[in-house]
Each structure stands twice: as C-alpha cells, then as structure tokens.
Design a protein around this nucleic acid. Sequence first.
DNA 1: ACTATGTGGATCGGGTCTAA
DNA 2: TTAGACCCGATCCACATAGT
Length: 411
Amino acid sequence: MPKLLLTKRNIDSKKHIPPVEKGQVDYFDTEVKGLMLRVGKESKTFYVQVDVLDLTTGKYKSVREKIGRYGEWTPEEARATAPQLIRRLRDGKPKEDPPPTLKAIYERYLVDKRLSKGTVTLYKGYIPRLFESWLDLPLNLLEKALTPEVVIDRFQHIRENNGPGAANNSFKCLQAIINYAEILYPQFITRNPTKVLSRTDMWAKIEGRDDCLEPKQFKIFSDALLKCTPAHRDCYTFALYHGIRPAEAYSLKWEDVDLENDFATFRHETERSKRTYTVPLSRQSKAILSRRKAAATEGQVHVFPKQGPRNKHEHLILRADHLKGKTGLSLTPHGLRRSFITTGERLRLRREDINWLTGHTDNTVTGKHYAKLTPDDLRPVLQAICNEIERLMLEGVGAKVITLPTAAQNQ
DNA sequence: ACTATGTGGATCGGGTCTAA
DNA sequence: TTAGACCCGATCCACATAGT
C-alpha cells in the first residue's frame, strides 16, 4: 500500500496519485498513522483505518471509518479530525450519528428547555422567519458557513429591515440555540459563530422606557380613569397601588387573594426569570378587591374579568394605547410600576423594601436577609406608599406632606 | 446570556348611537 | 325599524423592554 504525505499539493499531483481506472487505491498518510485517502475513479475520500483487538476472538481486525470527501474536507481538517476518530475506533465505540441540522437543534431546544409559552412563541416568531436559509446547515459546517462577515451582514440586514429590537432578539435566540448545540455536540461545533456580535460590540443599544407619573399627573390619571369601565379603572389603580407588573395585575385570580388576612399572590409559570411572590394588601388595594368581589359573578375566576364580548382570556387586558388614550398622558401600564417605585423613593423608603414588594429578586447580601421577611413585615411600607399615591390622586401636588415611614406605620 | 413580558399598529366584530 | 357609522375592548403579529 502506497504511503504519501497527504497535502493538497501531493493529492492534486498526477505524479503522486495517478488516475484510477478501476477499483480503488488507498494512500496512507506519512504523518498521521491511520489516516488515509481512498482514491477511486470519481472521488478521493479521507478515511481512518486502525487494527483493533477483538476481545471475543483475541485477534486483531481492521476497522475503517469515513471522514469525508476530499474537496469538502481539506487535508488539514482531515488530519485534525483523524486522531479522535482513531481513538474512538480503538475504544470500540460505535459510529456516531451524522451531525444534526441547525433546524433539528432548534426544535430540540424548544422541547428540552421547557420554556414558558411566551418564549416559545418568541423563538418560533424569529428563527424560521429570519434564519430560514441557515436552518438546513449541519452543525459541523456551521462554523465554516457562518463567518463573521456572514453573521454581521445578516444582523445588519435584520436591523435595517425589522428594527434593532428584532435584530437583538432574533440573534440572542439563535445564540442560545447554538450554545445548546455546543453542549450537546462538542464533536461537531466548538465555537458559536454569533459570538462575533459580542466581540465586536455590535448589539443594538436600546434605551429603557422611563414613562412615569409626575406628582401632578396622579390626579389627571385618576380623573381620567372615570372614562374607563369600573373593572379597568380598578385594575389600573390596583397595579399602581402595588407597583406590580401589568400581567400580574390583570391575570390575578380570586384563589390567590386572601381577603381575610389581606394578602395577594402573584404567580409565575416557570419561575426562571420571575418568581411567584406574596404581598400584603393596603387599605386602598383591599378596598379595590372588596369592590371587585362584590361585583363578581358566581364562579368568576379572575379578579378583573374580561370586558368585551369576544375575548380569548377570561380576564381583561391592560394596554398602553388604551391608557394613553384615556389619560392623554404618555404613560404605559409598566409606567405605573415605575410610578409606585418612584413614590417609594420620594418617601425615602428602603430600596430593598420596594424591591421586595414589587417582586424584584435581590441577590445582594442585604437582599438575602430579606428572604426571611414575611408580607406582614412589609405592610407598613406598602401602606405608606399607597397613602402617598392616594393623596396625590385626590389632592394633587399642593400642600405636600412628607410622610415619614415611621409615621406611616401608625396608620 | 438568556427568559419573559410589554408595546404598538392593524384589524376584527359586537354593541350602541344616529338618522331617515 | 333598520342600515350604517363609529366606538371600544380585544386579537394577532412584529418589534421593544424588563428582569434574573
């Protein structure tokens, strides 16, 4: 059997490898033991071949495995891949499955990770639509196909055509999927091509919103809510009195409200990015819930029931355009949460307390201590904020009374 | 480095007001 | 009495932010 240093130059040379008319000729590499090029009439293909001791017979036998065709694989790549293949053959391990496609990983990711419904929708909304042409790539070719230039090009294309948020989101989803592929198939992919966006600092910078009720706007807000349905009005106000996230407000169920002991629990499906938490009720928020209870029909599950006739959900929905339309303010439902937090800060209340009440997780050392607190411990703090919000809604900014937390505790 | 939810535009379709 | 305007709460989708 011929031996030959398997380099591009040698492989292409007719002198070293004469054309084959019939059958095949194997050329073993002079450098890597076990690496060989099988030359046929039509193609040249890299293989590894080793002798392995068969434990059942006590004899050696030759086993061979295909690396890939010359042309798709360079000699350097074949030489780099050969040692691990040889090692596996010597260990008697079975041949691995062919590399899955990006699409297969994407589908597996959605199943394996047990994401929330919303996140699955997010992935499904971006990946097939914006990366369709990449989905059929097998994992082992991903690094090769998705060069920095290709990645950056697509990123910029999406940013121009779909917006900066869509560009960030879609590529972060893709990045997560490929990271998962790296974990599952380190033999096929070792570097995430999307990382180039971090390394070149290309992610689109998106400013956070900051809409928030000014002190003088509380009254405008409150008065404008009279134009809403009572349920909407109560839901907006409840959200403001607790500083909770909009969905926590409108999806609240009666089973998570304790009107005897004055608690409410805001639940989260997966708890991976938001935790379920229980807060005390204030005098004001309890009044809202009691009013809702009185208005509730038999068997009504949600505190704030749907208002229109053709709703998918049994609860109503808070919408920014709705809120803006009614109040004339540039205010989103999430802005009510910022308004609550800001009110607490104006009262010079502790940031940790406010975090606790609004379901922010606090990983600081001080924050850990707060894990031991019960909703009752935070009741006076919530009451102080609610009193100030109520005062602003009723009286406006005039005759501002500074309510100190200590004074508030007596209420 | 993610995961989850919020926002906004277009649009739907039932309710209600209005005018003939 | 009824057609049509139009109002309004919601939906759906695509994109933007919030939060761990």
